[in-house]
């Protein structure tokens, strides 16, 4: 079995991360923003898996599990807030959230 070069994995993770970041920046629908956030977190999780495979220790996989846990916890809170927000504004458009400025 041929070894996959680390650079490829890292480039993949960086590309995924950037797609997520751009998504957060340009998407206007809150649900899609949250999905892009997930993408970013998964990209970072991939880096840890990569590191774990490269160095042959379990730290990376433990971190991967914790990042998954964080993503779940975060999305739970986020969806609760989105539901509240939708009740109030009847819209999921992030541009509507601009009551505060200055």
């Amino acid at each position: 079995m041929t070894e996959l070069p680390v650079e490829h994995g890292l480039l993949f993770a960086a590309a995924l991360f950037c797609i997520g970041l751009v998504g957060v920046l340009i998407r206007r629908n809150l649900i899609f923003i949250l999905m892009s956030l997930e993408l970013m977190l998964n990209a970072t999780a991939f880096v840890f898996v990569l590191g774990g495979a490269l160095h042959g220790n379990a730290d990376g996989q433990v971190m991967f599990l914790m990042i998954l846990t964080l993503a779940a916890a975060e999305i739970a809170v986020a969806l609760a807030l989105v539901v509240h927000l939708y009740r109030r504004y009847r819209s999921l458009d992030a541009d509507r959230l601009e009551a505060m400025k200055g």
């Binding site: 997520g20 990209a43 990569l50 590191g51 990376g60």
Partner: peptide, 17 residues
Amino acid sequence: SSVASGFLLFGIGCLYL
């Protein structure tokens, strides 16, 4: 804050790698 966490984690991931 989640975007910030993403950056932080990616940085930690690079250091770990």
